[in-house]
Design a binder for these strands. Structure first.
Lengths: 119, 119
DNA sequence: TAATCATACTGTGGAGTCTGAAACACCGAA
DNA sequence: TTCGGTGTTTCAGACTCCACAGTATGATTA
């Protein structure tokens, strides 16, 4: 019960980052963050187009991740009963909000990769 | 070679999100994002303090994640040869940049968890 | 007619990675 | 001698990912 160090670090917030539920957990999946941004950039976008951009991911992984994101209501899946089948993904409003916040992170990460002067 | 659909989506960017190297990969680890922000908020911070904030993660996971982040040069580890041992983690400049971009994401995610009106 | 194509997945097996509980190492203090 | 406080490492089990093949439908082609 040593609650003697609340660390009034002025930062103020410091909310409980603990349980990693919902979005935070979903975003830990491989390609999840990229996926959100890819959809955000191309929407409405079909499965095949996503595959092209994220060529490194397997279809099953993509499919799973997509399902998770839909379950989290970050994006919507619209299926057109045509032949051949067509499915389109779009961001929900929540998804768009997330995407906006995520983009700076990814952009920074890529830039960092690029200019990673090894020495 | 059907390069007929460059999708001049005006968004302009659309950089290759493909290989998921470096930071993007590291951030996919469980608690990685939270970890960066926790260190950012409390630095310089000791291992034990991190554990308190991220109580849901095990020490080994934390340790591994910390190592990865150090390897990515997102944070520094300073070990003091005292008894009992003391180790302090701090953000590097890169880490701080990342943290700044990450915080909006996490804040939003938490907020969303909180106000997840089920209907 | 029969074979082929296009799309968006789904299923399988195995390889690989990650996880948490507990044990470990250290040495001063009691 | 036993204890206490730190941070790291071990280990077996759980989980995730990948490559690849297969499913379904109907238009198109030979």
């Amino acid at each position: 019960m040593t609650e003697a160090t609340p660390e009034d670090r002025s930062e103020g917030e410091l909310t409980r980052y603990c349980p990693l539920t919902g979005v935070a957990g979903t975003l830990s999946g491989k390609y999840a963050m990229q996926l959100v941004c890819v959809v955000g950039a191309l929407e409405p976008v079909r499965f095949g187009a996503i595959e092209e951009r994220l060529a490194a991911a397997s279809t099953s992984t993509l499919s799973a991740r997509l399902d998770e994101l839909v379950a989290e209501r970050l994006l919507t899946r619209t299926q057109y009963d045509e032949i051949p089948p067509r499915v389109e993904y779009e961001l929900t409003e929540d998804g768009r909000e997330l995407c906006e916040r995520l983009e700076p992170v990814l952009a920074w990460a890529e830039e960092r990769e690029a200019g990673s002067g090894r020495t």
